[in-house]
């Protein structure tokens, strides 16, 4: 049995992963915005085999509350072995281009809020000299593209932050995992036409579980995004800037 904190627990990927934790009989504490969904999800995870499931509704942009929420999580579960950070929004790129306030809000949600949580969690785990911090970044953070560079920039910030954190926490025995999913079929993308590159949240969840058990540093999921992103990163900027990506 492991004690798992899931932040952004109602996201499709987080929920699919939580179901795998439940099947192992883990203990979970969930954080997300919507109380109604947390309540339903907690019942569901219990029936699916979780040892116990508790939750708190919160807003990731309410940075001041983060330490108290993490304290509460640690108390109610009697410690935290794994923290999975999965919250996020998919910004409206055009709206962000037109209005900085949109951009600010999106960067706060997707990067600053995550960094606030990570700062606190890192210190807790460092003191205990153990634990796993797993964070969902995105392939979008590997290179900026005109179609979603606000989201990409926020995810790139997370990716670099995690690199540094991994480097710092290595000597403390704390594992830091960066998860980079590609296109995932979630409620937000229900109406997108889906080609071969799309994956179900259940598939991503399996990869996350495997990466955590294998103590991986970075995982692209599904795996084929690794060669795809190697290729995309290797295109020289003078050429890349002309592409409509």
């Amino acid at each position: 049995m492991q004690k798992i904190l899931i932040i952004g627990a109602t996201s499709a990927i987080a929920e699919a992963t939580a179901r795998l934790f439940a099947a192992r009989g883990d203990r979970m504490h969930l954080l997300a915005r919507n109380h109604e969904r947390l309540e339903t999800m907690a019942k569901d995870l219990k029936i699916r085999g979780a040892e116990s499931v508790t939750f708190d509704a919160f807003d990731v942009n309410d940075f001041d509350r983060h330490p108290a929420l993490l304290d509460a999580a640690s108390v109610v579960m009697e410690g935290i072995d794994i923290a999975l950070i999965a919250h996020g929004t998919l910004p409206d790129q055009k709206a962000c281009e037109a209005d900085f306030l949109w951009t600010l809000k999106e960067v706060n949600t997707n990067a600053v809020g995550t960094i606030s949580l990570l700062t606190d969690l890192a210190n807790r785990f460092e003191r205990k000299q153990q634990g796993v911090i797993a964070v969902i970044s995105s392939v979008a953070g590997d290179r900026g593209r005109q179609s979603n560079y606000v989201y990409g920039a926020a995810k790139a910030a997370i990716t670099v932050f995690l690199q540094g954190l991994r480097n710092r926490l290595h000597k403390s025995g704390v594992k830091v995992l960066t998860i980079k999913p590609g296109f995932v079929d979630t409620p937000m993308t229900a109406d997108f036409p889906k080609g071969l590159l799309w994956a179900q949240p259940e598939r991503i969840a399996k990869d996350i579980l495997k990466a955590i058990s294998a103590s991986r540093d970075v995982v692209y999921t599904p795996w084929f995004w690794w060669p795809v992103m190697v290729l995309i990163r290797s295109i020289p900027e003078p050429i890349f800037k002309r592409l409509s990506l």
């Binding site: 499709a12 339903t40 999800m41 019942k43 569901d44 029936i47 699916r48 409620p187 229900a190």
Partner: peptide, 9 residues
């Protein structure tokens, strides 16, 4: 698809 919770057993 996402109304997929088991809420009682």
């Amino acid at each position: 698809r996402f109304l997929n919770h088991i809420t009682g057993f």
